[in-house]
């Protein structure tokens, strides 16, 4: 299983903080994103309508990354700390 986490505004809009996805559904982060856009009717427009950063195993990535069972993938808006 792959653990998917959502944070901040994105989490509120999607109505989920985390979910588990079968590793067979997502060989890489591009496939995972595709899977998520079809997870619920409104998710495609939410995920595609705003800047969405991703981290794999708690490190930011901006390219397509191969996934395996046990990985943690997080999606979140641009950060606003400090």
């Amino acid at each position: 299983m792959i653990t998917v986490l959502f944070f901040a505004k994105l989490s509120e809009q999607l109505g989920e903080r985390s979910l588990q996805v079968e590793a067979s559904q997502a060989a890489d982060t591009d496939q995972l994103f595709q899977y998520l856009t079809q997870y619920k009717a409104e998710w495609s427009s939410i995920l595609n309508s705003q800047p969405c950063l991703k981290a794999v195993n708690q490190a930011m990535v901006n390219t397509n990354v191969t996934l395996k069972s046990g990985d943690e993938v997080a999606y979140f808006p641009p950060v606003t700390g400090g």
Binding site: A8, A55, A74, P78, V79, T80, G81, G82
Partner: peptide, 24 residues
């Protein structure tokens, strides 16, 4: 770097009671 890379997010409550996520 903290302001642009560290995963923190601010949500403000205005004096009128409305809430708003802060944009980067």
């Amino acid at each position: 770097y903290l302001k642009t890379e560290a995963p923190f997010w601010k949500k403000e409550t205005m004096e009128n009671g409305q809430t708003k996520w802060v944009d980067a």
